[in-house]
């Protein structure tokens, strides 16, 4: 049965079984391959996308439950916070293998959209669901702080 999904601002009619996780719809039906498969059971965060502004694991979210939501994948991130995070990621050379990084960027962007001046504890809380086997954690933390400085200073100056 067809499901109507809104992904990165576009409507897509997807004809798959309702129990198919959104992850596989995004990756295999829509060829948005930035969102990654790492564990399939909400343990690693590689499959994270924003759903109505919330960082969400798509490997355990069915397509049926995704209908009517505003879905934003790594390819569709556009907020100033996303741009700041991605700029910091390149500048600090955060990614190594990169496989976890779409999920990291989505989680970090979501954190920054909600909290423009996160503490170390805020970062640990928001990011500990995203595993990085390459151990880029110190640079992720530094990247979030670098990106946050932009908003915090801007807000402070305003």
């Amino acid at each position: 049965m067809p499901y109507l999904l809104t992904i990165n601002g576009q409507s897509h009619e997807i004809d798959v079984e309702g129990d198919m996780p959104l992850l596989w719809v995004v990756r295999e039906q829509l060829n948005l391959t930035g969102t990654k498969f790492g564990c399939g059971m909400a343990q690693c965060g590689a499959c994270t996308v924003q759903i109505d502004g919330v960082a969400t694991r798509t490997c355990v979210l069915t397509v049926a439950d995704s209908v009517g939501k505003n879905i934003v994948t790594i390819e569709g991130l556009q907020s100033p916070q996303a741009l700041a995070i991605q700029t910091a990621w390149v500048e600090l050379q955060v990614p190594q293998c990169g496989y976890c990084q779409s999920g990291q960027v989505v989680s970090a962007t979501t954190l920054l959209e909600q909290n423009s001046n996160p503490t170390d504890a805020d970062i640990d809380a928001a990011m500990s669901g995203n595993i990085c086997r390459c151990g880029t954690y110190p640079r992720i933390k530094a990247g979030i702080k670098m990106a946050a400085a932009q908003f915090y200073n801007a807000a402070g100056a305003a």
């Binding site: 948005l32 391959t33 990654k36 790594i74 991130l77 390149v90 990169g98 496989y99 779409s102 960027v105």
Partner: peptide, 8 residues
């Protein structure tokens, strides 16, 4: 690798 474009 920061924007999902890298291919694995």
């Amino acid at each position: 690798k920061h924007n999902g474009a890298a291919i694995y």
